[in-house]
């Protein structure tokens, strides 16, 4: 693995997490005030923009590495998204949800390592 591929893997992960948080925020916002507000459009389009970057960077990585090599990094997204949703979106993160997310992350890493 080169430094470039590691940087690309991290970019794919960060843009994916950011995209999910932006879209969740957007859907909360539109649920309250509808789609026509400028802020809603900005949130949805920046969420889609972040997801698009993640999509193409992942596609590029898939041309060079096996899915089984790239997947453990995607597995980490579960626990990162749960923590970030609690911090930035003020969602309730119960002990039960944290343990569940940790087990899923660990399981995904284990599935893709073998």
């Amino acid at each position: 693995m080169t430094v470039l591929s590691l940087i690309l893997i991290i970019i794919a992960l960060i843009t994916f997490v950011a995209g999910q948080l932006l879209l969740k925020r957007a859907m909360e916002f539109t649920g309250q005030r509808g789609f026509h507000k400028a802020k809603a459009i900005f949130l949805v389009s920046s969420g889609i923009f972040a997801m698009t970057i993640s999509f193409f960077v992942t596609l590029g990585l898939l041309q060079h590495f096996d899915l089984s090599y790239l997947y453990p990094f995607q597995g980490l997204s579960v626990i990162i998204i749960s923590l970030m949703a609690a911090i930035t979106l003020k969602e309730k993160l119960t002990m039960q949800l944290t343990i569940g997310a940790l087990l899923i992350s660990a399981g995904v890493v284990l599935v893709s390592l073998s």
Partner: peptide, 14 residues
């Protein structure tokens, strides 16, 4: 199989 089991337990907890 162990990984699949862990994910299923985690999903059940959530």
């Amino acid at each position: 199989w162990c990984g699949i089991g862990l994910v299923i337990i985690g999903l059940a907890i959530v």
